[in-house]
Simulated scan of single mutants.
Amino acid sequence: MNRLSLAVCAAFFVLPTMASANAIERACNASDGGSSRALCSCIGGVADATLSRGQIREGARWFDDPQRAQDVRQSDRRRDEEMWQAWRQFSTLAEQRCTG
């Protein structure tokens, strides 16, 4: 797993107590993955540009209840599909913009 993946994963696991995209940056900075402040700032910026506060809060709930994430991923409801796509887009953009 590369440094970005570790930082993004760490951000997701710390996120449940936080409610804004900037929380992703703080969680990244607090992670044990050895991520640089510049990398964490980049990830936080991508989250700001990609995810709404509601999407961040909902995604944070997935880590308390992984089955909920699975249910969203498999759901045919438009809202769930939009949520899943937003998080996929965030992950892809963070990897593209923040590595290198």
Rank of each mutant, 00 (worst) to 15 (best):
residue 3 R to K: 12
residue 62 W to M: 07
residue 24 I to P: 10
residue 43 I to S: 00
residue 7 A to L: 04
residue 75 S to M: 05
residue 30 A to S: 12
residue 28 C to W: 07
residue 8 V to H: 01
residue 81 E to W: 10
residue 60 A to C: 11
residue 57 R to H: 10
residue 30 A to G: 09
residue 54 G to I: 04
residue 95 E to L: 04
residue 50 T to Q: 08
residue 41 S to H: 14
residue 99 T to K: 01
residue 83 M to E: 05
residue 97 R to Q: 08
residue 71 D to A: 10
residue 93 L to I: 11
residue 23 A to P: 10
residue 49 A to K: 15
residue 41 S to L: 14
residue 90 F to G: 01
residue 52 S to I: 08
residue 20 S to V: 14
residue 16 P to H: 07
residue 78 R to F: 04
residue 38 A to C: 08
residue 55 Q to R: 13
residue 33 G to N: 13
residue 61 R to N: 06
residue 80 D to K: 01
residue 8 V to S: 03
residue 74 Q to D: 12
residue 5 S to K: 13
residue 74 Q to H: 13
residue 11 A to Y: 06
residue 69 A to P: 02
residue 49 A to I: 12
residue 80 D to I: 01
residue 81 E to I: 15
residue 43 I to H: 01
residue 25 E to L: 08
residue 13 F to W: 08
residue 35 S to K: 09
residue 16 P to A: 06
residue 53 R to Q: 11
residue 5 S to P: 03
residue 69 A to M: 05
residue 99 T to F: 00
residue 81 E to F: 07
residue 3 R to A: 11
residue 35 S to C: 13
residue 94 A to Q: 00
residue 15 L to F: 11
residue 77 R to I: 03
residue 42 C to A: 04
residue 79 R to V: 11
residue 19 A to L: 10
residue 44 G to S: 09
residue 98 C to S: 00
residue 18 M to N: 13
residue 31 S to H: 04
residue 76 D to R: 15
residue 24 I to M: 14
residue 23 A to W: 08
residue 76 D to F: 10
residue 39 L to R: 03
residue 21 A to R: 13
residue 62 W to S: 03
residue 62 W to G: 09
residue 22 N to G: 15
residue 89 Q to W: 02
residue 59 G to H: 06
residue 25 E to P: 03
residue 64 D to I: 14
residue 16 P to M: 09
residue 42 C to Y: 03
residue 30 A to N: 12
residue 38 A to H: 11
residue 100 G to S: 02
residue 66 P to M: 00
residue 99 T to N: 02
residue 89 Q to H: 06
residue 18 M to R: 15
residue 80 D to R: 00
residue 40 C to G: 07
residue 46 V to C: 04
